[in-house]
């Protein structure tokens, strides 16, 4: 029992320290020793949450968040985890579709947000970059998400975001979803102008808002 506790702590700590090699080694070993994949997943999530906290405290930066996302993905790629996830994928907090809006090709913020959403139990569908209002509307109809995430870096994306929200209104699906905007240039005024439900200047704040919107925290 004592050993098990140590392994759990070690896994969390090595995720927190972004020690990729150690995480994979410990995770593989734990799975082979019979650890439940979902239990392991919780440990990894706890580690990633701590990374998020370090990011909020400005001890870690975006490069570190990217690395945390990568470690998380690698753990999910372990054979035992893949089997588990094929069988049980019903325990999701919600579904989100994300995309960088028309006129913008930047994808780093969107990808970090998507990765963090997945870590936090959301299913995420990625529509890509330079995504038109039509594709967003079709995405909402096809995937029936709980949340639509509009991402952008350029200041010009404010108008694109507004057009997308307007199109969702015209398509009669605006009230079926919550809309979150992501981008460092966004403000309360911009969010009101666009007609979204909320906005975030960085990915981890965005995840919190998504949970709040769905009443999960």
């Amino acid at each position: 029992m004592k050993n098990l506790i140590t392994v759990e702590d070690l896994i969390i700590k090595s995720v927190e320290e972004l020690d990729e090699e150690k995480v994979i080694r410990l995770a593989s070993k734990a799975l082979k020793a019979g650890m439940e994949p979902l239990f392991l997943l919780d440990l990894i999530k706890e580690g990633v949450k701590r990374v998020g906290k370090l990011y909020e405290d400005q001890k870690y930066f975006i490069a570190d968040l990217i690395m945390a996302g990568l470690i998380f993905k690698e753990v999910l790629e372990l054979e035992e985890m893949k089997v588990q996830f094929r069988r049980r994928n019903s325990k999701i907090l919600g579904r989100v579709i994300v995309g960088t809006v028309k006129g913008d090709l930047h994808d780093i913020g969107k990808d970090i947000f998507k990765g963090l959403m997945e870590v936090n139990g959301f299913e995420a569908v990625d529509l890509g970059v330079d995504v038109s209002k039509e594709v967003f509307a079709q995405g909402v109809i096809k995937y029936k998400p709980d949340i639509v995430g509009l991402s952008g870096v350029l200041t010009s994306t404010i108008d694109s975001m507004k057009e997308i929200v307007d199109t969702l209104v015209d398509a009669g699906v605006r009230n079926d979803v919550k809309i979150i905007l992501g981008g460092s240039h966004l403000t309360k005024e911009a969010c009101d102008y666009i007609g979204a439900d909320c906005y975030a200047n960085d990915a981890s704040a965005g995840v919190k808002l998504c949970k709040q919107m769905l009443g999960k925290i």
């Binding site: 028309k102 006129g103 913008d104 090709l105 930047h106 994808d107 780093i108 970059v129 330079d130 038109s132 350029l154 010009s156 694109s160």
Partner: peptide, 13 residues
Amino acid sequence: FQMASNGFIQHPE
């Protein structure tokens, strides 16, 4: 370096 649909040349990852 690619031109996005609005004519801006941008630098995708």
